Simulated assay, not measured.
Amino acid sequence: MSKSLISRRPVFRRGALSSADNNHQPSNSPLQALGWKPFFQQQLRLEELAECEPVKVMAVHRSQVEVTGDAGDEAILVNGPLFDDAAERPTVGDWLLLARQTRKPVRRLDRSSLFKRMAPGAKQAQLIAANVDNVLIVSSCNHDFNLSRVERYLALVREAGCRACLVLTKADLAANHDQYHEALKGHRDLPVVLVNALDTASVEPLREYCRSGETLALLGSSGVGKSTLLNSLAGSELAATSDIREDDSKGRHTTRHRALYTIPNGGLLLDSPGMRELGLADVREGLAATFADISALAEKCRFADCAHESEPGCAVQAAVESGELDERRLRNWRKLEREVARNSKTLAEARADDRALGQFYRAVQSHARAHKKRTD
């Protein structure tokens, strides 16, 4: 996906938001097709309606971001206060306000959802995408299928409050589909669709997740068929694809950066690089929702502070022994709980360090101003 995305998206006409006497967009508005909703409209101040226009971030590069909106496609240099804080800078899917005259970003609108991860060895969360409505968690019917990894993605998705669907690709190459349904019996509320990503008819059930005005994200490891699935949903070759290694079903990276694609008569699709390492932080609610059965069992334990190991009267261990609860699921819950606690602590410490550094800089500047005033 090394070529620019600008030529692949429609150029929108200017003027749909230039009038301040309407606080909503008509149903055929290009902005609505990009996901403009009352949630964002209500954040605009009166003066901003006349002086600014909203644009959607479609791709992020090292030196610029690609945006689109009522005026069409533009490239904005990554500089200025809006881009100073790595944890708050615009990411794919964000809405920005641009000054009509200077075309410079004024501010970023609040997000309806945000996906982020802790990269290996990082002390700061890496932003993945914002304002996503639906998520396809993509795995495949081969060695790549890993239920613990699916639960990791699911915790992230549910923390963001998005609708999730598990898509198992390469279904045409698997002789036994029952094993996957059996493995997923603990997630009966998670829709599961088996597809051949090369067959457009096979992916038709997924179109309800990418209606006009909605943003759909594809999350999964490299080589599971995300880019092929994206191309089938879009009806054209939007993303580069490559084969997997047959000996271990591991994939090669075909997507180099996160970007949004428009679908004819549909919404927006987010394609992202494979993320086999997806560190979790600040997803306690999502984790609780993903493992709601364990939380429900824990309430029946004899002791309120039960660690669910060898304590008497532990309802969780009793469920494992009776076969009601899969021991793998319990182990994965413990692992993710520890990881979330560790990464959340790291983020909290990093934020505290940033605040202390900011206070130091302000103190130095204040001292310099006071010294200059005395010597003048």
Rank of each mutant, 00 (worst) to 15 (best):
residue 35 G to R: 02
residue 35 G to N: 02
residue 35 G to C: 13
residue 36 W to R: 09
residue 37 K to L: 15
residue 37 K to S: 11
residue 38 P to K: 09
residue 39 F to Q: 15
residue 40 F to E: 05
residue 41 Q to W: 03
residue 42 Q to L: 11
residue 42 Q to D: 08
residue 43 Q to G: 06
residue 43 Q to K: 09
residue 43 Q to H: 06
residue 44 L to D: 03
residue 44 L to Q: 01
residue 44 L to K: 06
residue 45 R to F: 00
residue 45 R to D: 12
residue 46 L to E: 11
residue 47 E to C: 10
residue 47 E to I: 07
residue 47 E to M: 06
residue 48 E to H: 06
residue 49 L to N: 13
residue 49 L to E: 13
residue 50 A to N: 13
residue 52 C to E: 10
residue 53 E to F: 08
residue 57 V to A: 00
residue 57 V to R: 05
residue 58 M to Y: 03
residue 59 A to Y: 04
residue 61 H to T: 10
residue 61 H to K: 12
residue 61 H to L: 14
residue 62 R to D: 00
residue 62 R to L: 11
residue 62 R to M: 02
residue 64 Q to K: 07
residue 65 V to W: 06
residue 65 V to R: 10
residue 66 E to V: 08
residue 67 V to A: 10
residue 68 T to V: 09
residue 68 T to H: 08
residue 69 G to Y: 04
residue 70 D to H: 01
residue 70 D to W: 05
residue 70 D to C: 13
residue 71 A to Y: 01
residue 72 G to D: 05
residue 72 G to L: 10
residue 72 G to W: 03
residue 73 D to E: 12
residue 75 A to T: 06
residue 75 A to D: 07
residue 76 I to F: 00
residue 76 I to G: 13
residue 76 I to Y: 02
residue 77 L to P: 07
residue 77 L to H: 07
residue 78 V to P: 06
residue 80 G to C: 09
residue 85 D to E: 08
residue 85 D to R: 15
residue 86 A to M: 11
residue 86 A to Q: 14
residue 87 A to N: 01
residue 88 E to L: 15
residue 89 R to D: 00
residue 89 R to G: 01
residue 90 P to L: 00
residue 91 T to P: 11
residue 92 V to Q: 05
residue 93 G to K: 04
residue 94 D to E: 07
residue 96 L to G: 13
residue 96 L to P: 06
residue 97 L to M: 11
residue 97 L to I: 02
residue 98 L to F: 05
residue 98 L to N: 08
residue 99 A to P: 06
residue 99 A to Q: 06
residue 99 A to V: 03
residue 99 A to K: 11
residue 100 R to M: 03
residue 100 R to K: 08
residue 101 Q to R: 15
residue 102 T to R: 14
residue 102 T to Q: 12
residue 103 R to Y: 02
residue 104 K to E: 07
residue 104 K to F: 01
residue 105 P to D: 02
residue 106 V to N: 09
residue 106 V to M: 15
residue 106 V to P: 07
residue 107 R to I: 01
residue 108 R to V: 06
residue 109 L to K: 11
residue 109 L to G: 09
residue 109 L to S: 03
residue 111 R to P: 02
residue 112 S to K: 15
residue 113 S to W: 02
residue 113 S to A: 14
residue 116 K to H: 12
residue 116 K to Y: 04
residue 117 R to H: 02
residue 120 P to C: 12
residue 120 P to T: 02
residue 123 K to F: 09
residue 124 Q to I: 14
residue 126 Q to M: 15
residue 127 L to S: 13
residue 128 I to Q: 06
residue 130 A to M: 07
residue 130 A to G: 09
